[in-house]
């Protein structure tokens, strides 16, 4: 009986790996945009920069499924090409921000004392500059380019990631198994790598997803203000900016890139909300 029970317990559903249909759908949307970011420009029906239609702000049609923009360029092609910028820049920034945040957070939690106070104070100060404002100031000072954008986004979102990882790591650090390892004489590097990191990884990855959403939103916001990706390249935020003129009559050109952003960000949010509890929950 107990043998049968324990075997049945091993199915993914019972292990806490229950995955909801909404989560699967969200994961599919994310995967779609990830693929588009890689192959988008090659499968675009028209060259993204080429004026293909004399009619600007054209409606949806068989030839131009998402209409045309203010110059008469094919919106589908421009949205597909923009995926590379929006997804790529955001992904690079979130990787940088979270790596820095997690490493610093764990170090602060394990070392404690003076190191902890110093790192926390400096990052608190950084985070008390509203993020958009920080972007504005830096972009104004050194101009906008893709590396600058990635850097700015990473700096803006490092403190949040740090605070999250540190809180988790502080919790884990008080656990007796860390104390045992300490009493055994283990070095700090081992404590961080073997005792702390594996136990904060799940929630930290979920947090990284949320931060990715914030970064996509901020990048779009900067581009919308004209401070993000510069022409001739265009991410989704720039596409909305370019086509703002069509807003007063509801042109597809201004709506479609907005929908692209929304599908990506909402999907990431939904995926995280529907992650198996084992991953999402802060480790007990």
């Amino acid at each position: 009986m107990s043998q049968a029970l324990s075997l049945r317990n091993l199915s993914p559903r019972n292990m806490g790996w229950h995955v909801s249909p909404v989560g699967v759908l969200a994961a599919c949307v994310i995967a779609f945009w990830a693929v588009m970011a890689m192959v988008g420009p090659w499968i675009a029906p028209h060259p993204p920069g080429q004026i293909v239609d004399y009619d600007f702000f054209g409606p949806l049609s068989a030839e131009y499924p998402l209409g045309t923009d203010y110059l008469g360029r094919d919106m589908l092609s421009r949205v597909l090409a923009g995926a590379r910028f929006t997804v790529g820049i955001s992904l690079a920034a979130v990787m940088l921000a979270c790596t820095a945040g997690i490493v610093l957070g764990m170090a602060a939690a394990v070392l404690g004392g003076w190191t902890d106070t110093a790192i926390s104070r400096v990052l608190d100060a950084v985070s008390s500059i509203p993020s958009k404002l920080f972007g504005l100031v830096v972009v104004a000072a050194i101009g906008s380019s893709i590396p600058v954008l990635i850097g700015v986004l990473a700096v803006v979102y490092t403190p949040g990631s740090y605070r999250f990882a540190r809180a988790l790591a502080v919790n884990v650090n008080t656990m007796d198994y860390v104390t045992v390892a300490r009493a055994r004489g283990e070095r700090t590097a081992y404590l961080i790598r073997a005792e702390i990191m594996p136990n904060i990884l799940g929630p930290v990855l979920a947090d990284m997803g949320l931060r990715f959403v914030f970064i996509v939103l901020m990048l779009s916001g900067l581009s919308f203000l004209g401070l993000g990706v510069q022409p001739p390249n265009a991410d989704w935020g720039s596409l909305v900016r370019e086509n703002m003129g069509g807003l007063s009559f509801g042109a597809p050109a201004v709506i479609m890139p907005s929908i692209a952003i929304a599908t990506l960000t909402i999907s990431v949010n939904l995926l995280i909300d529907n992650l198996p509890t084992r991953i999402r929950d802060r480790s007990e």
Partner: peptide, 28 residues
């Protein structure tokens, strides 16, 4: 301080904690 103790001293004296739940690394 345990940090200043030699590996041999550390080895000869071991500590076992109250809550086995928190004394074992759940990821190992």
């Amino acid at each position: 301080s345990s940090r200043a103790r030699s590996k041999e001293d550390l080895r000869r004296l071991q500590i076992v904690f109250q809550l086995a739940d928190t004394a074992l690394n759940p990821a190992q």
